[in-house]
């Protein structure tokens, strides 16, 4: 098939991982990706060949996320029971190593804006200008949030005891 298809698949896998890292809850994460894709389909005409598909998709995802957060804040949380159930039954991840748990906590303690930048850069490998495009902020802001986020995580891991932050093998 065309190259385009497999490129898209790679990006969607990346969107799903990012959404999971951002929201932590699998149900919410898949919902977010799904809603973003619905919007992407309806706006496919606005995508220009030769421009950055990945940045385009992440921009859409980010905008959907912002809207979701906003509308959730506006009304009390009303969700169907099934959704809650599956939320409750999300298996705890017990097999994790201490460092992983500490990292999880450190990332969760970050302000949203720093967490988003850190995840997009360090987990999804987006370039800084792609992050700027996706989040709709200047590149200088990307850099300062990245820097503050990384240092905050670093400080947190260092003070949370087991300084045994694994050195990259």
């Amino acid at each position: 098939m065309n190259r385009f298809g497999s490129e898209l698949e790679v990006h969607i896998a990346s969107l799903r991982r990012y959404a999971r890292a951002l929201l932590r809850n699998p149900v919410d994460a898949e919902d977010l990706v799904q809603e973003a894709l619905v919007r992407a389909v309806s706006r496919a005409d606005s995508f220009q060949a030769g421009t950055n598909l990945r940045a385009w998709l992440f921009t859409i995802l980010h905008n959907v996320h912002v809207n979701q957060v906003r509308s959730r804040a506006a009304r009390p949380d009303e969700v169907p029971v099934e959704a809650v159930e599956s939320r409750l039954t999300t298996p705890p991840r017990q097999e994790e190593r201490v460092e992983v748990r500490e990292m999880m906590r450190a990332v969760e303690s970050l302000p949203d804006e720093q967490r988003q930048v850190l995840l997009l850069v360090a987990l999804e490998g987006l370039k800084y200008d792609e992050v700027a495009e996706a989040l709709g902020i200047p590149i200088g802001t990307v850099m300062s949030r990245l820097s503050r986020g990384r240092e905050a995580v670093r400080a947190k891991l260092a003070t949370d005891g087991s300084v045994a932050l694994r050195r990259v093998k």
Binding site: R150, V153, R166, V168
Partner: peptide
């Protein structure tokens, strides 16, 4: 920073 990425 690299270790953070690896953990993520």
């Amino acid at each position: 920073y690299r270790a953070q990425a690896a953990l993520l």
